[in-house]
């Protein structure tokens, strides 16, 4: 039920790559209201020049992540009541990504790292081959399933201190994706992928702070995926399966 007497004090970061500052807005507080609703209200009612990104509004597309009261979150599924402190909100762009304008970040570096981590599926069969029989109960499939629901929102990437310290670090999302493919029995680029993720900017740079797992909105555990990559690539190195001749 709408109660116009209650107001949220919302501080929004406004700016571009050259710099910016926080601007305060007052937004009507509602009983049920997400942070994305608040940002949308500001754009529609206070300042139409406010830039931000969203698409599905139901937690599937991964485009609306922002920093809310210092924490990276998907704003479409984050209720104001859960995060507001004394009816106050601070909304800023995601950390570790270059700002385009206001709350919209440039995600290209983030997706480039998916590519660098060999996050693409390398098929070993075509449509004329028999369908691979993979038991959903097999250990490898369970490992893949545990990480497969990533929506590429970059919350983990923004939460990661190693990404903040090393711009070349592949990051939790790309490594989590690589781990799902390492466990895909149909994929044909296993040694090449392990070589890539075991490189200097790969899984072994992770300090296991677990910020990625703490803030992942889908409750995935990228730290566990990275630990799996460390284990698998170490065993591969010790058994000579990480060399270029290993295929």
């Amino acid at each position: 039920m709408r109660d116009n007497s209650r107001q949220l004090e919302v501080r929004v970061w406004r700016g571009d790559p050259s710099g910016g500052r926080h601007i305060d807005y007052r937004v009507p507080e509602l009983d049920n209201q997400t942070v994305l609703d608040v940002v949308t209200w500001i754009q529609r009612n206070s300042d139409p020049s406010l830039s931000y990104r969203f698409a599905c509004r139901v937690g599937m597309c991964g485009s609306c992540a922002m920093t809310v009261n210092g924490v990276p979150r998907w704003t479409c599924r984050t209720h104001v009541r859960k995060v507001a402190q004394d009816s106050a909100l601070t909304v800023e762009p995601l950390r570790n990504l270059p700002v385009i304008k206001d709350l919209a970040c440039d995600m290209s570096g983030f997706f480039d790292k998916w590519d660098r981590a060999m996050g693409r599926f390398h098929a070993t069969a075509n449509r004329y081959d028999a369908i691979a029989a993979i038991s959903p109960d097999s250990d490898r499939r369970r490992e893949a399933d545990a990480g497969i629901e990533c929506i590429n929102c970059a919350v983990c990437y923004a939460a990661c201190d190693v990404v903040a310290l090393r711009t070349d670090y592949l990051g939790p999302a790309a490594l989590n994706r690589a781990w799902t493919l390492v466990n895909d029995a149909r994929d044909g680029a296993q040694s090449a992928r392990l070589r890539t993720v075991a490189s200097d900017a790969g899984c072994h740079s992770c300090h296991s702070h677990q910020s990625c797992s703490t803030w992942c909105p889908n409750e995935l555990n990228p730290t566990a995926s990275i630990a799996g990559l460390k284990r698998t690539s170490s065993i591969a190195a010790l058994t000579g399966k990480l060399s270029r001749n290993a295929g």
């Binding site: 075991a198 200097d200 072994h204 460390k230 170490s234 190195a237 010790l238 990480l242």
Partner: peptide, 8 residues
């Protein structure tokens, strides 16, 4: 590999 040397 430095990681392995570090762990060993």
């Amino acid at each position: 590999m430095l990681y392995l040397a570090q762990r060993i």
